[in-house]
């Protein structure tokens, strides 16, 4: 068996996690990299916690084994912590800065700082990215997903599997308003 890059995408239903996975899958195809993406649909999607398993390279099975994820992209700090056990010790987690509070009456969620500390203490390397804010500032409030991918890609974690040109081709193919999203993606690459 050859190499596999296991990528955990986490967030809240409605944040565009499934769309992001579709971009990555199409980018992989553009590059000629094999890919398997297991998604969350239906009931769980309505504002609930969402995890998508993305496996690049020589993967057969759809789900990432616990403790074997290489990278995480999380559009919410709480969801990063919820699925952290899918990652390897020492894996890199790109975590959105803003907590989206679960809409349950009387629930006070932990802060981003508290979550990040717990992730680091558990053995992960964490990069906090203000993707929601930057996407808003750059005029594409729904583009935090794409911004986050750009920020992660900037550090080279996808080298050998995917490149920026593959992502841009995929954005053109599967997202609405591709120009806007490509601008955002490039900004994230530059800022990441």
């Amino acid at each position: 068996m050859g190499r596999v890059l296991n990528l955990v995408l986490a967030g809240v239903g409605g944040q565009g996690i499934v769309s992001l996975a579709n971009v990555i899958a199409n980018a992989a195809l553009h590059r000629g990299t094999n890919v398997v993406v297991a998604e969350t649909h239906g009931l769980s999607q309505r504002g609930g916690s969402v995890i998508v398993h993305v496996r690049l390279g020589d993967a057969e099975a759809p789900l990432i084994p616990v403790g074997e994820g290489d990278i995480m992209i999380a559009l919410d700090p709480l969801e990063a912590a919820r699925y952290a056990h899918y990652l390897k010790q020492g894996a890199l987690a790109y975590v959105e800065q803003k907590v989206t509070p679960p809409p349950l009456p009387g629930v006070k969620p932990p802060s981003t700082e508290e979550v990040v500390r717990s992730l680091e203490e558990a053995g992960l390397r964490v990069r906090v990215v203000p993707a929601i804010r930057r996407a808003q500032e750059l005029g594409n409030p729904l583009g935090a997903n794409v911004y986050m991918l750009g920020a992660a890609m900037a550090s080279g974690v996808f080298d050998g599997y995917l490149g920026p040109e593959d992502v841009e081709a995929a954005i053109k193919l599967v997202l609405k308003k591709p120009e806007k999203n490509i601008r955002l993606f490039r900004a994230a690459l530059a800022e990441g």
Partner: peptide
């Protein structure tokens, strides 16, 4: 030997799906 995954020690509120 199953890997020892990171287990953040933090109490997380549940996030069930909700009415939009």
């Amino acid at each position: 030997e199953a890997p020892q995954p990171p287990r953040p020690r933090i109490s997380l509120p549940p996030r069930p799906p909700v009415l939009c």
